[in-house]
Write a protein that binds this DNA or RNA. Sequence first.
DNA 1: GTGAAAGCGCTAACAA
DNA 2: TTGTTAGCGCTTTCAC
Lengths: 349, 349
Amino acid sequence: MTGTTTSKIDTKRTQMADIARLAGVSTATVSRALNGSVLIKQETRERIQELARSLNYAINFSAKNLRSGDNRTIGVVIPYDINTRQHISDPFFLGMLGSLADALTDQGYDLLLSRVDAQHLDEVAKLYETGRVKGIILIGQWRHHDQLNELAMRRIPLVVWGAQLPGQMYCSVGSDNRMGGQMATEHLIQKGCKRIAFFGDVNLPEVAQRYEGYVLAHHHAKLPLEEALRVATPFASDLAQKMMIEFLDQTILFDAVFAASDLLAISIMGLLAARGLDVPRDYCVVGYDDVDAASHCHPPLTTIRQSVDVAGTQMVDCLEQLIAGGRPESRVLKIALTERQSTRQRKFR
Amino acid sequence: MTGTTTSKIDTKRTQMADIARLAGVSTATVSRALNGSVLIKQETRERIQELARSLNYAINFSAKNLRSGDNRTIGVVIPYDINTRQHISDPFFLGMLGSLADALTDQGYDLLLSRVDAQHLDEVAKLYETGRVKGIILIGQWRHHDQLNELAMRRIPLVVWGAQLPGQMYCSVGSDNRMGGQMATEHLIQKGCKRIAFFGDVNLPEVAQRYEGYVLAHHHAKLPLEEALRVATPFASDLAQKMMIEFLDQTILFDAVFAASDLLAISIMGLLAARGLDVPRDYCVVGYDDVDAASHCHPPLTTIRQSVDVAGTQMVDCLEQLIAGGRPESRVLKIALTERQSTRQRKFR
DNA sequence: GTGAAAGCGCTAACAA
DNA sequence: TTGTTAGCGCTTTCAC
């Protein structure tokens, strides 16, 4: 028995042989016609295509893939860290996923979504090695640089969203975090801020680079750096919230915040508001990502925009090159500062 | 030529035949051994499994699927509406996606993610008919009830996240929207609110049911309904924002808001704050979904919690029944009100 | 311009 | 307990 025992009238799905019989040609001709081969006389081709359509024919991908040793599926992997609970709860990732879905669809790929425990990143190798996917896009580098390098050495076509790191064997696409950090900080300095708190987990490469930009801006402006102003919050979570409250309770002197993600920025703005403090009058705040919420929150958030759409197409482009046997360069995407209320109307002191 | 021309040393992937040769058995034995068949002597079985492992063997799924006429992939579809730009920008959907990813993985399924133009929902049928997926989970019913019915009539195993509607041919899983709307409204009434604005697009079945609950609560409390208090905002977007501002500008008398999504609720709270109005002192606000942001915003938002994890497993469960030829009932999941600051400390007037 | 035929890597009925 | 054999539905070389 072939199909599942779903119904008694197991209407076998139409296949090439059926079309061939009906059209009075061979399956070879049908195959060619359906693939738009110029070898087939136009008239025959159109007749067969029409027939296929009217029969509601749908090709069997398993057979096609088996025969051609090929497939058009890309694995998109979102690692999650059980310990830090750094799940995909950030809307930025959803945006990225959407962007990838579109970019892959455009190129005729299917998207196999997989959540993988970051402890066992080598599981993603299986995806490739079983022939399920032709390549892998990994969203979120976290702190798994070494594991990623290992995957790349196994010759797995792999593109990672994240920072470009020294000694990197895999292809990465990411935004210019250093520049982003610098621009954000310079913007604040320009608004007259002098004691800028930095919120973010510098153990993550991307955040570390944003912090480097922050440091650089301070150097340029000949502003001193202060340890107490660096708060190592994880990405938005209860813990981050707790750390921010702690920070505020310490009554450390500061006049601005640069947060490594919009979620953190929005969170701190809420905390400040709850204490009767006003943004931007009392504190300026800059975020990172430019998620939807950044423009809808109050006050609307000045932030560093990472272009998600571009990211998607770029990653797919890299992956295609990798699949074709190329060795694409990692890419660093341009960012831009979007100024909104959270840093406006600030008076110099 | 078989493989892609990636490298010169085109190391052909190991396959069953290789293992068979090395083990001095037939491929049939290897197949059985690897599938853990009890027909094979334990010793042989273990030897073969060990060999496979050491050779880093990975089965070819195309071949397996072709032969067995089966596969373990489920399509998860997120329709997007080009017109209303109702993309998947709501974090609630990300949560759902994550939950589904986990539930499917637990059951040994792969997740094929697909974004489909809501105008062409029949495209999802192709996913099934080409044998790419064994069933389909659709997140977001929007206003496509009829199209979904049609898909169901084509005998496509389909589970939809959304409201249960009369004359529904497909299996749906959703939360108890009516009850949710009622609970939210009753909670507000209990806090002393009398003129409760409702924000949400009642053209969407889920929102319509929430509104029904709102109406019911008013009846129970013998409170009059007022047209002016119903604001047909779409799901969070610039347009929604604009409509809320318009509403506020009209200076319609109201003392509370029940928003059909947390995003809307958070948005309105920001708008109110920007006008120097306080939640919950001046206005109480209740949202819907209980997304992460609801507890991190300020003030923390009272909201109706939809249990995303349960939703994922329930949908997968339904789909499995459908695939097995069953006819599972649609499910309505329990909701719960989570009280937070946005409705606290309200004094009766 | 079209057809015949081989076979992709695996599974399962039937034999032994 | 294991092997033999016959395909699953498609693509593609080679022949006409």
